[in-house]
Amino acid sequence: MSAALRIDQPSSDEAVSVSNVSRHFVGRRPLFGGGSAPVARAVDGVSFRAPRGSCFAIVGESGSGKSSLARLLVGLLQPTSGEVRVDGAAVAGLDGAALRGLRRKIQLVLQDPRASLDPRMTVFDTLEEALQVHGLHPGRDARQARVADVMALVGLNAAHLDRYPHELSGGQRQRAAIARAIICEPEILVLDEPVSALDVSVQAQIINLLMELKQSLSLTFIIITHDLGLVEHMADSVGVMYLGRFVEQGVVEDVCGAPRHPYTQSLMAASSHHGAEAGAVLEGSIPSPLAVPTGCSFHTRCPAARVLAARAPAAAVDTPHGRLPRRCVQDQPSPMPAPGGASIATCHFADALPAQPAPRSA
């Protein structure tokens, strides 16, 4: 069984361990009419493990909870329930020196470097500040030498050190953001949509840079993305997220090569280099986490559910979203392992529906 699926067996070889983690945001109670305060279930019972040196991808649409999960991993959010462990240490409750040590070990690279870099600081000041915060390479000369080494690693030179973010191109800004993340010698990088804000011509350069750094620095990657092509290129294992939960999870070759969940199949169909043969393209938008549908949370948009309802009308019910299987509407599905245990799909009919082969680009 894949290491990514051993969700109940912690191991010292795991860089990141996430066990049944949830993060709920409670809104304000209605001013009139009473009632309880609304609860947004941004992350709802997610588990996965990432061995050292691996790349685990989290993929899904905007609003699925990917970025909230990324912030839970680095300690910017605290879980409502469950546990996040980095290098065997629980993240929740850390403060002071312990939290600073964690943040040196696991670093976050955000989607838009224009927003993540301080516009009032030069590239050198940004990188030096990280060393000063963590007390590394004391002395101006030592810090300058470390900054120069990291600049060379990310493909920038001394001419960029005195520039402000607005004086850099998009690719150069993201290289500077990556330099800031690796300058303190972390073990894990959480990459939240690291190339989606860049021009297509620059994306391949940054992806290749990240893969080179992963190899040369022995890094573990957790990558947050909606790009299935990027997942296939970079990741070892993947979790497909919908409304705060993983609906399919396993090794990339199985999840992307023969997806079993209708949502994964639809994402593959929407991917520009797979085509419609991978499954039906989704219609509509993802529901609000304030009002997660009953039963299977995907039933309001599931193309496979409509086909199944037509095949077995006696077991179907009418809903505002069409005629759907009663089981999909009323019962929350349990994870179903694939034969051989290389992936799991949270779908009532995962074994009844044929896995859709996803053609790969030439």
Score class of each variant (00 low, 15 high):
residue 4 A to L: 14
residue 234 M to H: 03
residue 322 G to W: 10
residue 51 P to N: 07
residue 357 P to A: 06
residue 52 R to S: 10
residue 179 A to W: 04
residue 247 V to A: 07
residue 272 S to L: 15
residue 362 A to T: 09
residue 146 R to S: 03
residue 148 A to P: 00
residue 215 Q to Y: 01
residue 360 R to V: 12
residue 22 S to K: 02
residue 64 S to M: 14
residue 317 V to P: 08
residue 64 S to N: 11
residue 66 K to Y: 13
residue 218 S to T: 13
residue 249 Q to I: 09
residue 188 I to L: 08
residue 280 A to P: 00
residue 56 F to G: 00
residue 319 T to Q: 07
residue 204 A to L: 08
residue 282 L to V: 06
residue 356 Q to T: 15
residue 248 E to F: 07
residue 16 V to G: 05
residue 107 Q to S: 01
residue 278 A to W: 06
residue 341 G to E: 10
residue 334 S to D: 14
residue 252 V to I: 12
residue 280 A to Y: 10
residue 103 R to W: 11
residue 324 L to C: 09
residue 132 Q to P: 02
residue 63 G to F: 15
residue 280 A to E: 14
residue 49 R to Y: 04
residue 28 R to W: 08
residue 109 V to C: 02
residue 333 P to H: 04
residue 277 E to H: 10
residue 77 L to R: 01
residue 213 L to A: 09
residue 250 G to F: 11
residue 141 D to I: 01
residue 355 A to M: 06
residue 84 V to S: 05
residue 140 R to T: 13
residue 163 R to W: 00
residue 335 P to T: 11
residue 127 L to W: 03
residue 95 D to L: 01
residue 234 M to S: 13
residue 43 V to R: 00
residue 261 H to M: 04
residue 332 Q to E: 15
residue 255 V to W: 08
residue 86 V to Y: 11
residue 143 R to G: 09
residue 160 H to N: 02
residue 47 S to L: 07
residue 313 P to S: 13
residue 185 E to Y: 07
residue 230 L to A: 08
residue 137 H to E: 15
residue 286 I to N: 01
residue 110 L to D: 00
residue 116 S to W: 13
residue 137 H to L: 00
residue 44 D to Y: 06
residue 99 L to G: 01
residue 83 E to M: 03
residue 201 S to T: 14
residue 254 D to L: 10
residue 335 P to S: 12
residue 236 D to T: 13
residue 280 A to Q: 15
residue 353 L to V: 07
residue 162 D to G: 15
residue 31 L to D: 00
residue 78 Q to H: 02
residue 348 H to N: 11
residue 96 G to R: 07
residue 4 A to H: 06
residue 181 A to S: 13
residue 328 C to Q: 01
residue 272 S to C: 01
residue 209 L to Q: 06
residue 129 E to L: 14
residue 206 I to S: 02
residue 135 G to C: 11
residue 96 G to E: 04
residue 269 A to S: 08
residue 245 R to V: 15
residue 317 V to I: 15
residue 76 L to K: 03
residue 33 G to E: 03
residue 50 A to H: 13
residue 102 L to E: 01
residue 51 P to C: 10
residue 212 E to I: 06
residue 354 P to V: 15
residue 198 L to V: 08
residue 260 R to F: 04
residue 138 P to R: 05
residue 135 G to N: 04
residue 28 R to S: 13
residue 103 R to S: 00
residue 117 L to C: 07
residue 190 V to E: 02
residue 255 V to K: 08
residue 70 A to M: 10
residue 168 L to S: 14
residue 78 Q to N: 10
residue 32 F to A: 02
residue 45 G to W: 01
residue 50 A to R: 08
residue 111 Q to S: 02
residue 295 G to I: 00
residue 362 A to L: 12
residue 168 L to Q: 12
residue 137 H to N: 09
residue 173 R to D: 08
residue 310 A to T: 01
residue 107 Q to L: 06
residue 57 A to K: 01
residue 61 E to D: 12
residue 165 P to R: 05
residue 122 T to Y: 02
residue 172 Q to H: 03
residue 74 V to W: 14
residue 87 D to V: 03
residue 109 V to F: 09
residue 268 M to Q: 12
residue 64 S to V: 12
residue 269 A to F: 12
residue 96 G to K: 06
residue 196 S to Y: 10
residue 245 R to N: 09
residue 348 H to D: 14
residue 127 L to T: 08
residue 232 E to K: 11
residue 257 G to Y: 04
residue 114 R to Y: 12
residue 29 R to W: 12
residue 51 P to L: 09
residue 146 R to V: 09
residue 24 H to C: 01
